[in-house]
Design a protein around this nucleic acid. Structure first.
Lengths: 253, 253
DNA sequence: TCTTATTTGTTCGTATGTATT
DNA sequence: GAATACATACGAACAAATAAG
């Protein structure tokens, strides 16, 4: 009887318990020995089960003594909806003095947005250089949080010829964010292309997003174009694959 | 320096070997004992490594005697690009007597498309009923292949009031596929919405797409609307998360 | 600062089960 | 039935991380 192997049964039961609130977000799962005893299986089997949940980003173990620090924690997974078409509209970006699309987006879903930015002039990665047609770029590396939970890592690239020496090299780009400033600089964007794929998280992403090392992320390559067909900005969004929903809409022709 | 664990090292080396063509698609990896001997680790460690590759859909073990059947196979992962906006245009769908969007899409990428369809009148799943505003629907369950490799599972739902007794209940919907027939029936679609998320594969999907049971799939909810704002078709595409790239494009306002 | 207790992380060896030819 | 190779499980051991004392 293949039925269901032990570790899958344990996986399902733990997941179920988590989803039904027996172990609410932020709480601690019982220790591995304890779970094993409760289900009548060995610790190795419990670990197999937990490994699956880790890959799903549902739990998040830390070594160390229980009580403080150690144990396997249930993660709060913010389910975030990203409305690609509407989020870039000027009205949305600048509503209530928001600092751009992410700000508005998170707030509209009842969470508190926060983000850090690291700016530098760098050599563009190959694919970015191809898209922008130049190697010299200003990189704005953003790390974003919702309710203080890391939810997105997104470096943006703008040709240095456009951004260098402007407000785009500062952390806070003001109301409406980067797109509003680019428009003021003479590069209003009117067309967007996005490319979505799923891949394993990189080391950096694992660390920042607190993901298991075989956890999937969605990678969104976003390019903004002027009416003349000039690409002026590329952003590579990386988000935990299980935590986001991407919405698109368009008219035929 | 955490000093990579053994199984991660083995994972990386196997993945690297696969990507560099040492083990080409369709070929057989060495047995688990053999890999273990080659890397100086136990079989359990090798299995940990292979489990990761399985989750990525890169390999695909089968039990049974070597030489025929048994062993761990390297999967041919067709990398497929789905151009959401262009694929639904009439010109694209009907080019060269194609049977719809998928046909054209796969052919344009140098592969041979094939698909099976199963049609039935059913009660719509809840979310579908909400979207279409009716419970009675015709379901067209499509299983799609590229170069004879299963690449997509996609049930479509059309209100029974529209589809029942029409060509839409037949397997082959003719040149241009479902959308062209719906247009002829008086329901041309002019607006589309899509919603993308990542989730674990269901049992059915695991089996058909030949995925590990914790493998991620991308789920694309596609809705087609008439100019009057009537939803006439919902399709839920499920594809292996690591094998597809989704392209979108739109103009601002 | 050092030690210690606790908890997860990795590995091994071994055994048994299951699918396939 | 026999042989092969993957699938799961157990028990044990030690490593690494973390915090408390």
């Amino acid at each position: 009887m293949p039925a269901r192997s032990h570790y899958r049964r344990v996986t399902d039961e733990l997941r179920d318990a988590i989803e039904r609130g027996v172990y609410p977000p932020g709480s601690l799962l019982p220790g591995e020995h304890e779970i094993g005893a409760a289900h009548g299986v060995s610790r190795a089997t419990v670990q197999n089960a937990i490994k699956v949940l880790r890959g799903e980003g549902l739990v998040h173990p830390r070594r160390g003594r229980a009580g403080a620090g150690g144990g396997t924690y249930v993660r709060a997974i913010p389910q975030i909806r990203r409305r690609a078409v509407t989020r870039y509209r000027q009205g949305a970006r600048e509503a209530n003095a928001a600092r751009g699309a992410f700000d508005t987006e998170i707030r509209s879903q009842g969470m508190v947005p926060r983000s850090d930015v690291l700016v530098a002039v760098v050599d563009a990665p190959e694919r970015v250089a191809e898209l922008l047609g130049t190697r010299q770029v200003v990189r704005r590396e953003r790390r974003m949080y919702a309710d203080d939970i890391p939810v997105q890592l997104a470096p943006s690239y703008i040709p240095a010829s456009i951004a260098e020496g402007t407000v785009l090299e500062q952390a806070d780009t003001g109301p409406g964010g980067m797109l509003s400033r680019l428009a003021e600089l003479g590069y209003p964007q009117s067309r967007f292309t996005e490319s979505v794929r799923v891949r394993r998280a990189t080391r950096d992403e694992q660390e920042f997003l607190d993901l298991a090392d075989d956890a999937p992320v969605m990678e969104i390559w976003h390019t903004g174009w002027t009416a003349a067909g000039l690409p002026v900005e590329v952003t590579v969004h990386a988000v935990p694959a299980y935590g986001w929903v991407l919405d698109y809409e368009w008219d035929d022709e």
